[in-house]
Design a protein around this nucleic acid. Structure first.
Length: 243
DNA sequence: CGTTTTTGACCCGCGC
DNA sequence: GCGCGGGTCAAAAACG
């Protein structure tokens, strides 16, 4: 890997997210991870935070989410990137990162909420197209290729996304929801793969990506996309008292 | 046996 | 137009 490559992912700009160091204690949601839970109690007052589990319910927007995370952090920011901006946030935010050093307890979230409406369509856009075209006699998944002459749709839209940086040895942090992994990809310029998860709840379109920062392997980057349309399973199992 | 993970192939958007 | 990289699909394998 060349120096150039490294520079592209320099501290400020890694993954295009606003990068802030956060403590294990700064992740105010349910987790059973031995590596992080022991510190979870010390960094915040359980009565005064809002779990991002709640946030992802759709009971609040991502600005509020960031606010919730920012209460112990002076520099938590909300970035509202469009798809294009999403790629550019690294540029935009680098100045902020350089100046606003987070408190030791800082958590981070970046949100993309410009697509708050029409979220269902955006995600389904791809899926919907395929069954329509191959439901007849094209059960063969290899017939995917034939799909290419499907009618062009509008530019694919993305769900609002929120990224969190978490210091954890564990990649897949427990957040109270159940996730099914549906893909994994190698990340360019990073030795660590990115994993793709989808909420297992029926009709719930929420997805998340989990990857480890190669700049700081102790940091896990979790990006949520979409909002849960159901209650947190963990809550139903009696975790609600924790929230 | 049902659910989840793995993994290679495919699709799509974007930059050159 | 082509190549690249990100994202998704789905069959097979693994797991509980």
């Amino acid at each position: 890997m060349s120096e150039e490559d490294k520079n592209l992912y320099n501290h400020h700009g890694s993954f295009g997210y606003h990068r802030q160091e956060i403590n294990q204690s700064s992740f105010p949601f349910i987790n059973d991870n031995p590596s992080i839970q022991t510190k979870n109690q010390q960094g915040f007052d359980p009565t005064s935070y809002m779990s991002f589990t709640d946030c992802l319910h759709g009971s609040m927007d991502y600005n509020a989410l960031s606010t919730a995370f920012g209460m112990s952090c002076s520099s938590s920011e909300v970035i509202s990137p469009t798809d294009e901006n999403w790629k550019n946030v690294g540029v935009e935010k680098s100045s902020a990162t350089g100046e606003n050093l987070p408190t030791p307890n800082s958590s981070v979230s970046c949100s993309s909420n410009e697509l708050g409406t029409g979220e269902e369509e955006s995600v389904k856009s791809k899926k919907e197209k395929q069954p329509q075209l191959c439901e007849d006699g094209a059960k063969d998944q290899k017939s995917k290729k034939a799909i290419s002459n499907k009618p062009k749709k509008e530019k694919r839209q993305r769900e609002p996304r929120v990224a969190f940086l978490t210091k954890s040895e564990i990649d897949h942090l427990e957040d109270g929801y159940r996730w099914r992994k549906y893909g994994q990809k190698a990340v360019k310029n990073s030795p660590y793969p990115r994993s793709y998860y989808r909420c297992t709840s029926p009709k719930c379109i929420v997805k998340k990506r989990v990857e480890r920062s190669f700049q700081d392997p102790s940091t896990v980057i979790t990006t949520y996309e979409g909002k849960h349309n159901h209650h947190c399973p963990a809550n139903l199992r009696g975790f609600s008292s924790l929230i």
